[in-house]
């Protein structure tokens, strides 16, 4: 009975605690001077250090989408330039942001949760608080800000690398000439596409870092708890990336 009640109230409890954590983060913005050094460290760890893996994933997404689109377009009635018209918008509007999001959920989200979780269970967060510091401001604000600032950068890189990957695959496989590919991309270019992708990347950056900070900050139960938080941070971030992806598509398109 008690456990049923707990299960029913748990989501509301978590949501409330998440909102309160963000509110506490927001009120600490006034002391940002104290945390600025941390922001740069986090921007490097979240952004710069993620470039290689994001580029790798984006290049492959671009290449695979190109090859598979070419495979599907068997009819001689459809011009080959259609391949560019399909691949480029998919990268800009969906794959660029979502693939980057999944990778960062694993790479950055898990790292944040493990770091903060370890700090929680070894009383380092208590130590910060005991000194009279705002631990939320010190630990969470720089991480979330770094996510929101660096994710769009990663998204733009992913788009460039992804399109290059597509071009390269087109060239190597001989599916379509580069000129045709680009022509198709131009003809069907949506001016709103890059904005849509950028908005997504802001949102995903916030979703991943804030959820992972939440999971890590409220870790309980020693090393095992850190493991649990880490996994949950990655999984729950992915779920909320998909959800917010859908919501943004419905609201903005």
């Amino acid at each position: 009975m008690a456990s049923l009640q707990l299960r029913l109230t748990q989501p509301f409890f978590s949501l409330g605690r998440y909102v309160m954590l963000l509110a506490k983060a927001f009120t600490s913005l006034g002391e940002f001077g104290l945390y600025r050094k941390n922001l740069f460290v986090q921007m490097v760890r979240t952004g710069i250090d993620s470039i290689p893996i994001v580029a790798l994933a984006a290049a492959f997404s671009g290449a695979v989408t190109t090859v598979q689109t070419a495979y599907q377009l068997v009819s001689p009635l459809i011009p080959k330039s259609t391949i560019g018209a399909v691949v480029v918008p998919s990268l800009i509007m969906e794959l660029g942001a979502v693939v980057t999001g999944f990778i960062l959920a694993g790479r950055v989200g898990a790292r944040i949760a493990a770091e903060l979780g370890t700090m929680r269970v070894t009383e380092q967060i208590d130590a910060l608080e005991a000194m009279g510091l705002n631990s939320v401001g010190y630990l969470i604000v720089p991480r979330v800000m770094a996510g929101v600032l660096m994710f769009p950068v990663l998204y733009v890189s992913a788009c460039f690398v992804g399109i290059s990957g597509g071009l390269l695959a087109a060239e190597i496989s001989g599916a379509v000439a580069i000129g045709e590919f680009i022509q198709g991309a131009r003809d069907y270019y949506l001016p709103f596409g890059p904005y849509f992708g950028l908005i997504k990347s802001f949102v995903f950056g916030f979703v991943i870092t804030s959820i992972s900070c939440y999971m890590g900050y409220f870790t309980e139960g020693g090393a095992e708890g850190v493991g649990r938080s880490t996994t949950q941070a990655a999984v729950i971030s992915c779920v909320y990336i998909l959800l917010s992806d859908l919501v943004l598509a419905i609201v903005l398109l």
Partner: peptide, 23 residues
């Protein structure tokens, strides 16, 4: 308030059980 509490805490030094050094 939280900011007043933080000022009170600044008068304390605390040695935690496991040390709680920032690793």
């Amino acid at each position: 308030s939280y900011s007043e509490l933080r000022r009170v805490r600044q008068q304390f030094g605390v040695l935690f059980q496991g040390g709680a050094l920032f690793d």
